Structures are given as structure tokens and as C-alpha cells.
Computed example of a mutant assay.
Amino acid sequence: PLLVMLTYPERAEATRPALQIASPAPADGRIKLALVGAGGFAQGMHLPNLQKLKDSYDLRTIVSRTGLSARSAAERFGAPNAATDFKTVLDDPDIDLVLIATRHDLHAGMTLDALRAGKHVFVEKPLAMNEDELAEIEAFYRDNPNGPVLMTGFNRRFSPAVVAAKKVLANRTSPMIVNYRMNAGYIPADHWVHGPQGGGRNIGEGCHIYDLFNALTGSTPVEVNAMSIVPESKYWLRNDNFNATVRYADGSVCTLTYTAMGSKSYAKERADIFVDGKVLTLDDYKQLTVAGGSGGWKGTTMQKGQQEELAALAETLRKGAAWPISLEDQIFATRISFEVEKQIAL
């Protein structure tokens, strides 16, 4: 036959039960976690880090778009359950924390659903794609000031190099100037990152650096100015070739140069921090040097803080410590990205 039509009886509600792979192990007081979105980044970064932090985290469920990918990841990383339905996690009273690593356009909605279900949330950046989504998250915490912990995956502030920089900056007496360069590398214009699912590279990745500016200054952003290239073709895009400057209430000025026009053979990220007669140079999260003062750090590999951010979140959830990133800073970083996008889209 050229065509086969399959029909099914009507059901009040279609459900997708979780697939149990093995008998669940005792949690032993660890944070019971569900991962939603088992893509390349989650499997290459978050899941290995959770294994390293197994004394703190108990991975219970992996949710992915297809049952095959969910089950494959669950078997590989030792999760007893796999599922394709996010609601499975929301309805599970044993889940303490939901780690959301889906495509960007799903982040805010899933975050709100999990928070309303009483789950703590770690959501990869961006926290939200637009002002309406961010306003809903703000409204949730206005109505629930003692609600679950929310943490956006702004990992760079937790990197060893940035921790060392903050020690040098702890007793500063002047504002600082921070020049940050992101040699991001070219991604074709038809890639999902640039479309409705990704939101573009300023909102999707630039927010990392705006949060880092918040962390370094420890101050409140008061003014944002941005300017992009004016491309003659559709090959180069405005929102991955721009300068953004943020002025803070303490007088500091932080500038991000974000570009896709450089060579991938050149280092991706560098920051120069000018303050109190010193120059702190952060070189691709491999080392921090301090000219005119003491301190610094050097590693054997690039360390961007992904494992450290999960360790900090565990400290909060297990011991009642302060949030690893304040709600205000998460909102500030996200809102800066919106203002930059507005200015460079002109």
C-alpha cells in the first residue's frame, strides 16, 4: 500500500510513564535530582560533574525528548528512571531539584512550572528570553518570597580564576574598568542558536558575562549602552558582533566585546581589570595574573566553574546557606541582555 492510516481510541488524557531501569538506591540524605534535557552539553558537562559530586547529589531521573536518548543517558550515568514527559518530574514527590538543560526557549516556562511544583531549580542560561518571561519569574518570588531556590547556570563567577580575582578586589578603594573580549567563533545564521529557540548569542551567551560583571563589581547596574556592526550581508549578524558597556552604581565601567569575526585558533576569552593601580588579566580561564600587586592563579586546564557552581548549590540546599547567586543578580544579568539586544537590533 502507498498509505496506511492508524487510528486510536479516544482517551481522556495521554500519559507517558517513566521507564524504571533499576531499583532505586537509598538517597542517604543527598539532593534528589532530575535532569531535563539530555543533550550534548548536559552529557558532556553536567552529568559527569554530578558523578564527581555523588556525595551531594542523587541523580534519580533523566528526561529527554525521545525515550531512546533518555534511557541511554540514564543507563550511562546510573539514573534509575528515564522519561519523556516533564510532568513526570513535577509530580514526583521525591525530586528535590530540577536541572533544566533544554533549548533556550523552554527555560522560563519549565522553570516556573518546577518552582510552582515546589522544586528547587538549576536552569542553564538564559533564564528567560524576553521581558514577559522574566516578569513572571519576578512575580512568582514577589508572591512567594520564601519559595524554592533558583539558580541560573552563570558558571564563570565560580571559576577558580574569578574567585582569585575577587580576593584581590575585595578591599579595592576605587571603581574598576573591566574590558572583556569574547572571541566567540562563527556560527551559521541558520543555526538554532540564532532562531526563536535560541534567541541569539547576546541573550544566549552574553548574559554569562553580564553576570560576571555583577559578581566582580558587587554593585548594581545603572546604565547600559551597546553598539553593533552594520553588516552588508546576512553572513555576519549584529547580535554576535557588538560592544556593550555597563555602568555600575559604584562608578565602575565594564565593557564586553563580543564577536564572531575572529579566528577560532585564537583564545576565546580574556579580561583586563584596571583598579587601584593594578591590572588583573584573566586569560581564557587558565590563569589570572596581577600586575602591580600580589595574588593570581594558574591551572593546568581551562576551568570555567561548572563543577564549582553545582558544589555551591549543594551547599545552599543541604546547609541552608545563602543562594549561590542572588535573585537580583540573576535578574540584572538577564535584563542587561534584553537592553543590549534592544539597542543592537536598531
Results as ranks from 00 to 15, higher is better:
248 Y>G: 03
248 Y>I: 12
249 A>T: 03
251 G>R: 11
251 G>K: 13
251 G>V: 06
253 V>Y: 03
253 V>M: 13
254 C>N: 06
254 C>H: 00
255 T>H: 05
255 T>Y: 05
256 L>H: 08
256 L>V: 13
257 T>P: 00
257 T>K: 14
258 Y>G: 07
258 Y>H: 07
258 Y>R: 08
259 T>S: 15
259 T>A: 13
260 A>I: 03
260 A>Y: 05
260 A>Q: 11
260 A>G: 08
261 M>H: 08
261 M>Y: 05
262 G>S: 11
262 G>Q: 14
262 G>M: 11
263 S>F: 11
263 S>W: 13
267 A>I: 08
267 A>V: 07
267 A>E: 10
268 K>F: 01
269 E>K: 14
269 E>I: 11
270 R>Q: 13
271 A>K: 07
272 D>L: 05
272 D>A: 07
272 D>I: 01
273 I>M: 10
273 I>V: 14
275 V>L: 11
275 V>D: 10
276 D>W: 05
276 D>V: 04
277 G>I: 13
277 G>M: 15
277 G>Q: 15
278 K>S: 04
278 K>H: 04
278 K>E: 04
279 V>Q: 15
279 V>D: 11
280 L>I: 04
280 L>S: 04
282 L>C: 02
282 L>I: 11
284 D>W: 15
285 Y>P: 00
285 Y>F: 15
285 Y>D: 08
285 Y>V: 02
286 K>V: 01
287 Q>V: 05
287 Q>N: 12
287 Q>C: 07
287 Q>G: 10
288 L>Y: 06
289 T>R: 08
289 T>S: 11
289 T>Q: 01
291 A>N: 14
292 G>P: 09
293 G>M: 12
293 G>S: 09
294 S>D: 12
295 G>V: 01
295 G>N: 00
295 G>K: 00
296 G>A: 15
297 W>L: 10
297 W>G: 09
297 W>V: 07
297 W>N: 10
298 K>E: 05
298 K>L: 01
298 K>A: 07
299 G>E: 10
299 G>S: 13
299 G>M: 12
299 G>H: 10
300 T>A: 06
300 T>M: 04
301 T>E: 10
302 M>N: 04
302 M>R: 08
303 Q>Y: 04
303 Q>W: 04
304 K>D: 11
305 G>V: 06
305 G>N: 09
306 Q>G: 01
307 Q>K: 15
308 E>A: 06
308 E>L: 02
309 E>L: 12
309 E>Q: 15
310 L>F: 14
311 A>H: 03
311 A>G: 03
311 A>V: 01
311 A>L: 05
312 A>F: 03
312 A>T: 05
312 A>M: 05
315 E>K: 12
316 T>C: 13
316 T>L: 03
316 T>H: 08
316 T>N: 09
317 L>Q: 04
318 R>Y: 02
318 R>L: 14
318 R>D: 02
319 K>S: 14
321 A>S: 12
321 A>C: 03
323 W>A: 12
323 W>M: 10
324 P>K: 05
325 I>G: 00
325 I>D: 00
325 I>A: 01
